[in-house]
């Protein structure tokens, strides 16, 4: 992910539409990806819009304590979680809980390890079947620059929890991929 330069950020804070357009173009893809993974394609666009409105509203107060990309994704994370909570209230659905149990270790056979289209499609399906917070951790980790610390900040949890969530998510993904 590219970062905005200081001058563009300053112009964003002043409400310059051209600079806000640059910010939007810069982070639309990761925000959309996160939204799609977390709430599904149908609501991804809504989450995206809400995220950017929240980002524009708060960019005046952005202090630069973290990278702008991390901050934007943290905002997107909060919006996603809000949507999921709302949906849960409406549907009272039974989301598989993120238990502390670890899946029995499954390994991919060499043929699976090719990152071909088929594998990616299956991986995307498998990711959609992960519990919410594991899915969120894996999605955030998909953006190379995001460290455990940044993910923990975005998810408002401890670093150790991120480590455990990622491990459990990967084990579960391997099991789901093997089951295909």
């Amino acid at each position: 992910m590219t970062e905005l330069d200081v001058e563009t950020l300053r112009r964003c804070r002043r409400g310059d539409p051209a600079a806000l357009g640059v910010l939007y173009d810069c982070y639309r893809r990761p925000v959309y990806y996160l939204a799609r993974r977390m709430v599904g394609e149908a609501e991804a666009e809504d989450v995206c819009q809400e995220t950017f409105i929240a980002v524009f509203r708060a960019v005046v107060k952005f202090e630069g304590k973290s990278k702008l990309s991390t901050w934007v994704l943290a905002v997107a994370t909060r919006v996603c979680l809000m949507h999921l909570r709302k949906r849960r209230r409406q549907e009272a659905s039974a989301e598989p809980a993120d238990t502390a149990e670890t899946e029995p270790m499954t390994l991919l056979s060499p043929s699976h390890e090719l990152l071909n289209k088929e594998f990616l499609k299956r991986l995307a399906d498998a990711m959609d079947r992960l519990p919410e917070n594991q899915r969120l951790a894996v999605s955030l980790r998909s953006f190379e620059e995001m460290s455990y610390e940044e993910i923990a900040r975005a998810m408002n949890c401890r670093l150790e929890q991120v480590r455990a969530m990622l491990f459990r998510a990967r084990c579960r993904l391997l099991k789901l991929l093997e089951g295909h």
């Binding site: 893809r29 925000v31 959309y32 990806y33 666009e45 991919l108 390890e113 990152l115």
Partner: peptide
């Protein structure tokens, strides 16, 4: 083999994250 499996999953997720978002 364990590391390779984790790596395949991680690289796959990173590749998924590169998919372009629809333009509007």
């Amino acid at each position: 083999a364990i590391l390779r499996s984790f790596e395949a999953v991680q690289r796959g997720a990173e590749q998924l994250a590169q998919e372009p978002a629809p333009t509007r």
